[in-house]
């Protein structure tokens, strides 16, 4: 998949016969996936190029930073999903105030017509564009007729009679409801981050942890203990149990820290980027009166995690091994 990072690069690229999927696609959830797949299919059938056109950073971060929600996915995660869906080109438009000032008609003319040879556009039912987000799907359909491209508006995707939305998924993760988040995302929610030096508390009782520092803007699931998979290098997944808890800090607000105990793993991975794929919330965070109580709980968490993870059919996972 080709990635285009600005308007100049887009102009130079000279893309022809583009079928574009427009949106922010935070989370790349089931609704987004349906929309993007429709664009990819149409491009394949018509011999054109499928493109996702999205803004970086998220427009809300520029226009209303105080209302900007934590994100469900980082940009590299979104790009990975786009590629997996078969997208040919990801066009990342830098969201500047200048771009924000364009009227809906100007946006369509300057971006979709002049910079891209757009033949068809796919948007979600709640898509908005142009200055003050004044343009909606109906307006885009009208502008498409005027400027010679087709527009398809994708209806909301429902799961169990509920409309799939990023807000809904955010709520599920904030409650630690991984099953619900997965149901609407269509994949395991995950958090990437760099492994940093921790306080090495777990090491003393045989539970060394990789302390994962997540990106600042990313939503972290609720505090507690989780069964999870950890991807250390691109193609390997390791079974793990993960604690999300408050990090002792001198700052006024409390930051969360992700501590992953990877089973049967003794490699030094400080400074490496890993990704934690959450599978199930096991219990809330709690304090223990003594080390014995902590050990009892950790052993139970480990058994529970194994029993959950063994059903995931990950080839590297050896089902017949000793759990403890």
């Amino acid at each position: 998949m080709r990635v285009i990072n600005d308007l100049a690069e887009l102009e130079q690229a000279g893309l022809r016969h583009v079928v574009a999927a427009l949106g922010n696609f935070d989370g790349v959830h089931l609704g987004h996936r349906e929309l993007i797949k429709a664009a990819v299919t149409r491009a394949e059938q018509s011999g054109g190029l499928s493109a996702v056109v999205t803004f970086v950073p998220h427009p809300m971060k520029v226009l209303a930073p105080e209302k900007f929600p934590k994100l469900l996915t980082t940009l590299p995660q979104r790009l990975r999903h786009f590629e997996a869906l078969g997208v040919d080109v990801a066009i990342l438009l830098p969201f500047t105030l200048e771009l924000a000032m364009l009227s809906p008609a100007e946006f369509v003319r300057r971006i979709l017509r002049e910079k891209l040879d757009t033949v068809h556009v796919y948007v979600g039912f709640n898509y908005s564009f142009g200055s003050g987000a004044k343009g909606g799907p109906d307006e885009l359909v009208g502008l498409g007729e005027e400027m010679g491209f087709g527009v398809s508006v994708i209806e909301p995707r429902r799961v169990d009679d509920v409309i799939v939305s990023s807000t809904l998924i955010r709520g599920a993760l904030e409650r630690g409801d991984i099953d619900e988040a997965e149901k609407f995302l269509g994949y395991w929610p995950s958090v990437p981050g760099m492994v940093v030096q921790g306080d090495r508390r777990g090491r003393t009782i045989g539970y060394p942890t990789a302390n994962v520092e997540p990106p600042e803007d990313l939503l972290i699931p609720a505090r507690g203990v989780y069964a999870a998979w950890v991807s250390v290098s691109k193609d390997s997944l390791y079974p793990a149990m993960v604690n999300i808890g408050a990090k002792p800090t001198f700052k006024a607000w409390s930051e969360d820290v992700i501590e992953a105990h990877i089973f049967d793993f003794d490699r030094d991975i400080y400074g490496q980027t890993v990704e934690v794929f959450f599978r199930r919330h096991l219990r809330d965070e709690r304090k223990f009166a003594n080390v014995g109580d902590l050990l009892r709980q950790l052993k139970n968490d480990q058994i529970t995690s194994y029993n959950i993870l063994k059903n995931d059919n990950i080839p590297e996972f050896k089902h017949n091994k000793q759990i403890l």
């Binding site: 050990l295 009892r296 052993k299 139970n300 058994i303 194994y306 000793q322 759990i323 403890l324």
Partner: peptide, 11 residues
């Protein structure tokens, strides 16, 4: 307690 736990987990 640990012995029971380990035995139940197949150790």
């Amino acid at each position: 307690e640990l012995e029971q736990l380990y035995r139940n987990s197949g150790s």
